[in-house]
Design a protein around this nucleic acid. Structure first.
Lengths: 253, 253
DNA sequence: TAGTGGTCTAGACCACGGG
DNA sequence: CCGTGGTCTAGACCACTAT
């Protein structure tokens, strides 16, 4: 009568494992430290390796761990705050703070992008690749789609592709008056090319930030930015470096 | 010499499977349709069930599929746009559009929350639970932490807990002048209680939106909102219903 | 070459939902 | 009750990294 449902709802092993590991990370490990390998850990906890991996995967998803093939599993630093929403109403490349042009060419965008840009399904648009670094690590890869109509004065003075071309397209964009923009954030998994640039495996969880730039009543450009979900916390306010989650209760001893 | 690296970089089976399934979803299935069960699908593709599941998991992560134990796997509708950033500079519960108060009590918040609120580590704060629906489905669960100092005029006129109490706390909040707010979005996994409220399993991927509300030079309230990552696209602009990703190239036939 | 994490298999049993 | 997805096992081999 007083047993309070003991074990009547047994939680999965990997869930319990995750809790135990999480507490161990807080108390017994420091950032950057290497954990024992998966086979040893599994043996130590008396579970199959697949079960242990399920726990590790969740902890990696939450940004607590970092795993690299051929290297090992390390304790991840706290997620880095990445400002996304501060500079409202500015064109990409304006006060070119965070993004670095990588490449540019003309290509037929995915159908969904063509719809948003109101271009024809087979119409070429300028496709600018940019990348974003933070603390020396790549945190995001971006594809910026710019219809030819948005940069009418763009001439062939530069190479038809390459970083110089990318800068030229961005420069031309500034000539338009930006009427507004809106953003959406959703979960995705990294495509092969993005994964390579982000130094992750294909399929890794990413936060996809889609931004539409409006000018002259049209969508003048569309940016699809892919952020590493394991290491990034996207910030939209003005204080980018406030830590909220997973404070390991560090006593001010 | 002309073989173009054929199969020299064999992609994982689950990755290829995911591609095949994804194309099949676009062409041969419609929203809500039930897929064959995992054992049949695995047999049909000649792989182990675990491998098939790896592909299904990714597709679910991307919002293409919905899986429910005891029921089956169905084709998910496109992600619903959920407005998060429209009402800037308003207190929660103001034009109570989307959120519905569920419960309220006083509790000691997690250490990280206490730090942000600048309350003592053992200090009680009002903890309001709210939930958010969209299209008849729960899409988010929120915990709103309000220090006693932010609602000084709150009296015991209402019950010490319950929805009525929640509304009272929200009502008192409106009396403060809101100086500003900032937001952060990151990936997380659902805690047991949130998972229950969101009708998902514990550990499901969620988008965690943390909002700080500033008043009188302090953080007057802190909201931690947990959105279903599989079904939600968080929108920050003014046009919440633009679809960008995964348009199955629907011909306007 | 040795050791790591990543992929894959072929089973088994469990928890849940609906008839 | 049965069928579903969820968990778990004990192996095997592969891809990658550092030495």
């Amino acid at each position: 009568m007083g047993t309070t449902q003991l074990e009547s709802v047994p939680e999965p092993k990997y869930w319990h494992l995750k809790t135990v590991l999480s507490e161990a990370l807080d108390s017994e490990f420091s950032v950057g430290e290497i954990l024992p390998n998966e086979r040893d850990l599994a043996a130590r906890f008396g579970v199959a390796r697949a079960t242990l991996r399920q726990a590790l995967e969740q902890l990696e998803l939450e940004g607590r761990l970092q795993r690299r093939r051929g290297v090992g599993t390390t304790v991840a630093p706290p997620r880095v705050g990445v400002a996304v929403g501060t500079e409202r109403h500015t064109w990409p490349g304006a006060a070119s703070d965070a993004w670095q042009p990588v490449d540019c060419d003309q290509a037929v965008p995915p159908a969904a992008v063509a719809t948003a840009l109101e271009t024809g399904a087979d119409e070429l648009v300028h496709t600018v690749r940019r990348s974003r670094m933070s603390h020396g690590q790549p945190v995001a890869a971006e594809l910026l789609y710019v219809p030819a109509a948005s940069v009418p004065d763009l001439t062939a003075i530069d190479a038809p592709s390459g970083p110089a071309r990318a800068r030229a397209v961005l420069r031309e964009l500034q000539h338009l008056t930006l009427d507004g923009q809106d953003r959406a954030v959703e979960l995705g998994s990294a495509r092969a090319d993005d994964a390579k640039e982000l130094d992750r495996l294909p399929g890794s969880p990413v936060l996809v930030v889609t931004t539409r730039f409006y000018a002259a009543g049209r969508t003048a450009a569309l940016s699809v930015a892919t952020y590493r979900a394991d290491t990034c916390r996207l910030t939209f306010g003005d204080s980018p470096d406030v830590e909220i989650h997973h404070d390991p209760e560090r006593q001010a001893s």
